[in-house]
Every structure is written in C-alpha cells, then in structure tokens.
C-alpha cells in the first residue's frame, strides 16, 4: 500500500521547512507571526549569552557560534524572585552565570504557572533573548519546574552538542566552499539557524571524526576529472581500492553523501558520480 511505503515524517524531517519536534516553540501563539529563522530554539548556558556578540547593525540581535540567537532554552535555579500583578522577574542561575528573566502574566494560565515557581527551584525556561542598553535579559514564554534532575546534565550536553555543531559547521564552510558554493551541508539541519533535534544530528554527525573524512575523500575523489570521464561514474569497489578503505565504511560515507545530494548512483547501485561536475 502506498501509505505504508511512504513515511512522510522521515522523508521530510531533514527538509528544512518543517521544524523538528525538539525545536518547535512550546507555545504556538507567539511563533505564528514570526519568520522561520526566529523560531529556532537554542540550548545555551548563561555564560554563552553573556559573551554573545551583538550583531552591529541591529542592536537587539545576538550571535553565538555564528548563529543568530532569538529563542533560547535554559536550565537553572531561580534567584531573587519578585512577583507583581502584571509580571514576575527573577534571576536564572545555571552555575555559569546569571541572567535576568521576565515573565508577563496575562492570563489565568500564566499566573498558575508562575505561582508554582519558587525561589531556589530548578526550572527549564524557554524565552526570547533581548538586549537593551548593553543589558541582556530573557522574555520568558514558558517556565516549568524540573522534576527529573537528569535534565540538568542533559541540558548541558545539549549546549555542548549545539555549540560543537555550529562551530564545526562554520569551520567546514571555511574549508569546503572552494569547490562548491553551497557547501556539502546543503542538507538542512546544517543551515545553522535551526537548532536541530539532537537525535537527528547524532545520527548524521555522531561519527564526525572518522566518517567525515572518508566522505570528504570520496567527494574529492569523485570530483577528479578522471572520475568524471566515464558516463557511468565510478564503481564502489574501485573507490574503496583507491582510497584504501573497507567497502563497509565506504558505503556508509556514500550513503551519507547520497542523502546530502552530493553524489548519486548511476546505472546501478554500485556506480557513483558527483553532482557537481555533471
């Protein structure tokens, strides 16, 4: 049956037009009016925010690891909580620094939410990063107490992962662009503005070290004029032999490259060509 063969969510999950689940804004009401870039949600430490660069032209935009920062998610303890009728302000201390947070209380749901937030409590917040007169603060959309404290460790692992991911992406762009303007990473999670779900990332880039190099080698090899001479492309066994890698490893790399649209199989499943030179 058609429906059982076509897994829509899998097919589109890397498509860039669909925010992955982990990055989806917690509250749809505020995201509808904004463009897609500002919907991304970055896990950050307060230290990163305090060191974030202000992009010069627009005073309210921050950039971390070369990525524009709008919406962020943080985990930390609530300090100096001050509640008023209209809003609640507090400092969030995540152990790397402190940042002022502000949550407007407009509806009954909001006041219920903030009343449960007490001084000293660990919370996960989602909010919008603002800069005003050099001071950084968060406009909080959602705040909820942490009940499983493993979330603290996992949040910081997320921060590390996204940092690694974004900074590595930039390095890749620096090196790889000479041969191809749009960069190997045209597959979307790489577009930088989106903090992709960790699952998605790790499946593609969990193997950053070794596999990545093989991919680059394969790509370089297939871009050689000699490899382009034959219409049929190059047989995988020949690539494996030339690059001195096992066919298993090679096929993993090839699979990734095919998924990224950088190479394609020609007359059968064993011959491959680079998409760049024809």
């Amino acid at each position: 049956m058609y429906g059982s063969e076509f897994d829509g969510s899998a097919a589109f999950s890397g498509g860039g037009f669909m925010p992955s689940q982990a990055t989806q804004a917690p509250d749809p009401s505020f995201s509808t009016s904004k463009n897609r870039d500002s919907q991304s949600l970055l896990p950050l430490t307060v230290k990163q925010i305090n060191e974030a660069l202000l992009t010069s032209d627009d005073k309210s935009n921050f950039s971390i690891d070369g990525v524009d920062v709008n919406n962020v998610t943080l985990v930390g303890r609530v300090c100096n909580r001050t509640g008023r009728v209209t809003d609640v302000t507090f400092l969030l201390d995540d152990g790397t620094g402190r940042i002022e947070c502000n949550k407007w209380v407009q509806e009954f749901v909001d006041s219920n939410e903030v009343e449960g937030i007490l001084e000293g409590m660990y919370v996960r917040i989602h909010g919008h990063l603002k800069g005003f007169l050099g001071k950084r603060s968060l406009n909080v959309f959602s705040i909820r107490p942490i009940t499983d404290f493993n979330e603290i460790a996992s949040h910081f692992i997320d921060c590390i992962y996204v940092h690694l991911y974004n900074s590595r992406l930039r390095k890749l762009q620096g090196v790889g662009v000479t041969t191809q303007p749009q960069m190997p990473s045209t597959s979307t999670p790489m577009m930088g503005h989106q903090a992709t779900s960790v699952n998605q990332l790790s499946s593609q880039y969990g193997n950053v070290g070794g596999q990545k190099n093989i991919e680059q080698m394969v790509l370089d090899f297939l871009q050689l004029p000699a490899s382009n001479a034959d219409e049929k492309g190059v047989h995988r066994d020949f690539i494996a032999q030339q690059l001195r890698v096992s066919v298993d490893k090679l096929m993993l790399a090839i699979q990734n490259l095919v998924e990224e649209g950088l190479i394609y199989s020609t007359t059968d499943d064993f011959h491959f060509k680079s998409t760049i030179n024809g």
Partner: peptide, 29 residues
C-alpha cells in the same frame, strides 16, 4: 545551597558533564 535530586540519578552522565565542563568545553561554563 542544596537540592535533593531524589533517589535515582544518572551519575555517569553527570560525571561526564563535570569532565567536559572542566575540559574541552570549559569555554561554555
């Protein structure tokens, strides 16, 4: 200050975070 994390906790992951936060990714912390 102190916080009770309950009776079950993944110490291994936390330990890894300790190491990363003092090592390769000190800059974030």
């Amino acid at each position: 200050t102190w916080t009770n994390f309950g009776n079950t906790f993944d110490t291994q992951s936390y330990n890894q975070v300790c190491q990363l936060a003092n090592g390769e990714f000190k800059g974030l912390f």
